[in-house]
Design a protein around this nucleic acid. Structure first.
Lengths: 136, 136
DNA sequence: GCATTATCCTATTAAATCGATAGGGTAATA
DNA sequence: TATTACCCTATCGATTTAATAGGATAATGC
């Protein structure tokens, strides 16, 4: 299940991508427009800023803005930042790999086999979908 | 993230599918072989039995066994029984649909758009993968 | 300069879910 | 008729999630 954190993050990013200019947008503007808890959204945007997706400006006329062209922001980046692993099981995760306690042999594991397929497929979609694609 | 419930359930089903005959297998045998908590596995197999995937036999020589040919058990069935919705967001779920509180218009929602793609793709994989495929 | 604005940061919390455990009841078999 | 093994309910600790609170800090415009 997708967390609200990720869901809200994507919505906020799309909102920013739809802005004509790159002028900063206040948290409260996005939060009201997208029906997101202001404080919760605040922490999400902070994460995105700390990881180089967003820039911010303090004081009057401040807010958040995209640092890159939406075309250059693949969903893989967003998902990994906010949601964490894309794979459904740690043992098939590229960026968050973990061995299973129970499995003696990963290659013989049926769960591993099917979830690897799912991950490959999902990954492909997220890789080929950019923020620009979602903003149309 | 895939729950251990589903993970264990798949492993148990594969174990049963690998049996040459359809003789009942005791919970404890599967639990030991697959490194699964006996009691936890018990509740999982019970769910699978109540939903027509497994049959059971009480008393000496009893245990669980598959009711259908592994070829006729698609992973969609297993996933929906144990994990619940296949979609990452309720608003794109076929069997567990729910409207989002925040979204005024589903068709205009970016999250909806991308997650629909992911669901279609994942669903296709689960549909085309049977228990028999995982048991080889 | 100074008041205003809006981000920045830490801590807390209520609720839900997950994984596991406990303990006995019931039915079938040999 | 004793044994075996599934059946059923209840509980519990740990973790995660979503949200909230309260103030510190920095930048802007007048």
């Amino acid at each position: 299940m997708l967390s609200k954190k990720t869901k809200y993050g994507i919505k906020a990013l799309v909102y920013l991508a739809k802005q004509e200019n790159r002028a900063p947008v206040q948290i409260s503007v996005i939060s009201q427009s997208e029906n997101i808890s202001r404080k919760f959204l605040e922490s999400i945007l902070l994460t995105l800023r700390k990881n180089g997706v967003l820039g911010s400006k303090k004081g009057k006329g401040g807010g958040y803005y995209l640092l890159k062209d939406p075309k250059n922001i693949p969903m893989t980046d967003v998902m990994r930042l906010l949601e964490g692993p894309i794979a459904m099981v740690p043992c098939v995760s590229l960026n968050f790999y973990e061995k299973c306690d129970d499995c003696p042999d990963e290659n013989a594991c049926a769960v591993h086999k099917i979830m690897l397929k799912v991950r490959d497929n999902t990954l492909e979609i997220f890789r080929n979908t950019t923020l620009a694609d979602l903003s149309n």
